[in-house]
Structures are given as structure tokens and as C-alpha cells.
Design a protein around this nucleic acid. Structure first.
Lengths: 106, 106
DNA sequence: CGCTATACATCATATCACGAAGTATCCACT
DNA sequence: AGTGGATACTTCGTGATATGATGTATAGCG
């Protein structure tokens, strides 16, 4: 997928991945893979950004000697998803503008 | 609209604006306004990028003493629009992932 | 004569996805 | 015991890019 387009979907897609149940980095990447492929460095950058924006909270959990950071969505995070839903109408309108055929004289 | 999301739609939207008939900067901004609001500096940056990518050609026309640059879409530009159409399926799939309700236990 | 619209251009800035590289643990295989 | 791969998170540098600010120049209106 086009990188620029991906940019607009990444944040909200990560939030969706932790919406129903808390999750951690590696798992999020796996869950998102069918929809958007992203690297670790990209994900952790996003997670940090969403944390700074108070859209999620973090909780560290010991797991087999290693550290795991579980991410939990906040009200602001849920609102971000709702905002995306609201924007969908605009996106559809743009889609129609871009794909409309100027039939008649071509 | 969210800036990041806008980024993914700008190029293809500009191409759509000149698809049916050649157009120039100021006119393109007006035509796109109902769908995407963008500033002059943004548009001219995009036009230059699309020109470099051979997605459009430019032709200068004298108009009332001033210079007007008319932009014409190329085959590569039309292909870019087609590629966007192809990507639409992926976008829809992401939309469904983001908006799906985890009804049942919440 | 000043203001607004038209029309294009350049620059500096801030944001951001991503590859590369690093640290550290656990498990399977040989 | 040693090797390699999967798991898990972190940091750094780079390139792409949207945008505000600013500048130049003309036409037309009051």
C-alpha cells in the first residue's frame, strides 16, 4: 500500500488492535499484519506517540524473564476511533471524486 | 480532516482534478476545496512532485499579462488513479477492522 | 491610489515511517 | 555445550512531505 495513505491509517489501526483487549508490541504487529504490515521501529514510535497523546496507557509485565509492555486504550483513544468513523464520509466523498468517470466525451 | 490521512489522498485528488481537462494552480485549489482544503504552497509542491514523477506535463500560457501554467495528466498519472482504485479494497478492509464492534462481552 | 483577487515561487520547520543496529531471553536442534 | 531463531523492546539517522510565512507581479474596482 502507498506509504502516504498508510500514514493516515496507522494510528487508528493500532488503537483498534488494542481496543477489545490489552496487547503488546509483538502481538499487535501480528494482529495487524493482514491489514497493514509495519516494522517494529514503526510500531514503537507510534505507541510512544499515542501514549504521549494520552490515547493509551502502558503497564509492564514480567513474562518469562523478559519484559512485556501491555497497552490499554483510553477514552481519548476510543474517541480517536470515533473521529475516524466521522471522517469516513469525507473519505468516501473524495473516493467518488477521484474515481468518477467523465463519460460523455472521452 | 486528519493531516496524515489527507497526505494519502492529496496526490491522487490533484490528479483527479486535472483528469478530465487541463487546469492550473488556482483553479485546482478551487475545484478541490469541497473535498480537500489545501494551501497554495502545498499544491505547488505537489504539482512539482507529480511533474518530476512524470504523472503530468506543464504548459505555460500567457493570460492577461500573467503567466498561467496548465497541467495535463499523463499515462502514468492515470495509472496512479487506477492504483488508488485497486488499493481501495485494502482501505475498506482496514475500515472494517477499525470499526468492528467486539459485541458479546463488553 | 489603495485594495483585493489572481497566480506562481521559495524557504524553514515540524512530523513521521522505516531500515539498521543493539540488548536480552527462551527454546529447539545437534 | 553451542548455535540459531523467535520473542521483545530501544535508539538513531534519514528521507519524504504539508504548511505557514513571505515575496513578486498584474488586473480590475471603487
Amino acid at each position: 500500500m502507498d506509504i502516504q495513505l498508510k500514514r493516515g491509517l496507522l494510528d487508528v489501526c493500532v488503537l483498534a488492535a488494542i481496543k477489545s483487549k490489552d496487547s503488546y508490541g509483538y502481538q499487535i504487529i501480528k494482529d495487524m499484519k493482514p491489514y497493514l504490515d509495519l516494522s517494529e521501529s514503526t510500531l514503537y514510535t507510534i505507541l510512544k506517540r499515542l501514549e504521549t497523546a494520552n490515547m493509551l496507557t502502558v503497564r509492564s509485565v514480567e513474562h518469562g524473564g523478559r519484559l512485556r509492555k501491555y497497552y490499554h486504550i483510553t477514552g481519548a483513544g476510543l474517541k480517536r476511533i470515533e473521529d475516524f468513523k466521522d471522517e469516513w464520509g469525507e473519505i468516501l466523498s473524495i473516493y467518488r471524486f477521484v474515481t468518477k468517470e467523465d463519460d460523455g466525451n472521452e
